[in-house]
Design a protein around this nucleic acid. Structure first.
Length: 497
RNA sequence: GUCCCCUUCGUCUAGUGGUUAGGACUCAGGAUUUUCAUUCCUGCAACAGGGGUUCGACUCCCCUAGGGGAUGCCA
């Protein structure tokens, strides 16, 4: 049984890279008929943010990545907040202490800083090289240690990394990776406030929650030696590992929330990492899922689709096809993907999505049937759903003003005459369809020995007030004969250069 | 500094020893018998550099360079 987990720390916002990690965990679990778990890694009290967990869960819900087990859903492996599992971590830390795999250390962070200064090595690690010079249960005798503990001296529990070892593991994405033990420090397992660090909590929980595949960001790759050694000390089997490449800013820097105000005002080379910004901007959940899935993964040779539904992604996904190199986030392509999803969406569904905007602008859409036709006509031209009321306003009310630029460019001396003649032609029509309208328009231009554009543009302007829009004949058909003739007449008198 | 990871068009990528190195986004041009913000077509544009291995390297190995990550009682 495949079990994956998304284990974010609740920092107050959801990072786009974090969402992709969640997505890959979700896709992998679903692909294998497994379970996707949400676990909140809230062991750092100093970074507690009010409402962050709710925020996280609502972002996952928005994206459609609903956990099978988690704080909200529950499950047989809870609690799913690490802050509620501290007794567990202490118990396992004690086991390590008893087995001699860990020890108690009384040195404070300040003391380590001083040590670094005095040795002139700013990168000095707490490890086998200096372990014997420090104040810990390896050097002090039992009585001294007990005395310090009884006096409530702050202390931590550290993992005792063995010397002269090479930790080798297989990463699904990167293949075999190894680290020498002198490269890894005696990691703090339990902090002086009694909370575990990520490393202990992570290993204990992944084991207890029976996680089969750990899929997470590349920033964890160099911590893996500590983790596999912990599994070894506990006599547990380590899960499979897959370390995902990072998502970067256009300038190749790490995506950061700092100095980003909004999506519309981005600093040069930066992009907003906050998923909430994209929600607010009007991106569809399908778009974000689709786009970030492709940022580091693709279905492989012979499949050049760019647009995927979540179900398709579940079917196609495999960790073996995840790339190794970091990817740059491209807003342009994101917008294009959004437009594609809107174009491919069921018109009926889009109709419902669009109604609130119309209500907000006080636009009366008349019949469902009419609205359906308008949406159908416009959907391929929208990049965002919320553009609809702006793009298509004239379908619901007569234009009140006419785009100045277009007037200047397209309104000629003979425009009024041509339009009035065109009106005469269309009132004669029994069937108001594309072909007959086009024919009528040509009758007028040919009679006046004018180019088609001489009439097309003024008609569009008079009818919609705009210089751009869907194909003119399609637009006129949807608008209907009555509306079109009324607006043409109105335009003929109202528009002046 | 040290360790680890990575390196194909501007960007996302296909490619697993023999290809005119393919697609997508962007951009430019054209078509839809003069809208463009639709659609279609065309074009621009890449194997980081240097050594090997091989009859033959984008593909395998090594080195260099560049980028990223880690180096916390943060995750």
């Amino acid at each position: 049984m495949t079990r994956t987990r998304f284990a974010p720390s609740p920092t107050g916002f959801v990072h786009i890279g974090g969402l992709r990690t969640a997505l890959y965990n979700y896709l992998f679990a679903k692909k294998h008929g497994g379970t996707f778990i949400l676990r909140i890694e809230d062991t750092d009290r100093t970074r507690f943010v009010e409402g962050a967990t709710e925020n996280l869960i609502s972002a996952l819900n928005w994206a459609g990545l609903v956990p099978d087990e988690g704080p909200e859903t529950g499950g047989d492996f809870g609690p799913y907040f690490q802050s509620e599992r501290t007794d567990l971590y202490k118990k396992y830390a004690q086991e390590l202490l008893d087995n001699g795999h860990a020890y108690i250390a009384f040195d404070t962070p300040e003391e380590m800083d001083e040590k670094r200064k005095s040795t002139g090595n700013p990168h000095l690690k707490y490890d086998a090289s200096i372990r014997n010079e420090m104040r810990n249960s390896l050097n002090l005798d039992n009585a001294q240690v007990q005395e310090l503990i009884d006096a409530e001296t702050p202390h931590v529990i550290r993992l005792k990394i063995p010397e002269d070892r090479t930790f080798t593991f297989k990463d699904i994405i990167r293949g075999e990776v190894s680290f020498k033990s002198e490269q890894v420090d005696d990691q703090v397992l339990i902090k002086s406030d009694g909370f575990p660090t990520y490393h202990l909590a992570n290993v204990v929980d992944d084991h207890l929650m029976e996680i089969t595949h750990v899929i997470r960001g590349e920033e964890w790759l160099s911590s893996v030696p500590k983790h596999i050694y912990l599994y070894e000390c506990f006599g547990w089997q380590a899960p499979e590992m897959a370390h995902l490449p990072l998502i970067l800013n256009p300038d190749k820097s790490k995506m950061s929330k700092r100095d980003i105000q909004s999506l519309d005002d981005l600093p040069q080379g930066k992009v907003d990492p906050d998923v909430a910004s994209y929600v607010k901007k009007g991106f569809e959940p399908e778009t974000i899922i689709n786009y970030i899935a492709l940022l580091g993964w693709n279905p492989g040779e012979g499949d050049e689709r760019q647009i995927f539904t979540k179900e398709e992604l579940v079917n196609e996904f495999s960790l073996e096809r995840v790339n190794k190199a970091a990817a740059i986030f491209d807003l342009r392509k994101l917008e294009w993907v959004n437009g594609e999803h809107i174009t491919q969406r069921d018109t009926a569904e889009l109709v419902e999505q669009v109604k609130p905007q119309l209500a907000e602008k006080g636009l009366d859409y008349g019949s469902e049937e009419y609205l359906f036709k308008v949406v159908d006509l416009l959907k391929s031209r929208m990049l965002f759903v919320d553009q609809f009321a702006v793009l298509g306003e004239y379908f619901f009310k007569d234009p009140e003003h006419y785009d100045e630029k277009t007037v200047k460019k397209r309104w000629k001396d003979d425009s009024v005459k041509l339009i009035l003649e065109f009106v005469d032609e269309i009132v004669k029509l029994d069937v108001f369809d594309k072909e007959s309208i086009e024919k009528a328009l040509h009758v007028v231009t040919e009679r006046n020995e004018a180019g088609t554009g001489r009439l097309i543009h003024p008609v569009r302007l008079a009818v919609s007030g705009m210089g751009v829009g869907p194909g003119l004949y399609d637009m006129l058909v949807v608008l209907g004969k009555e509306t079109v003739t009324r607006r043409l007449k109105a335009g003929a008198t109202a528009i002046t250069r």
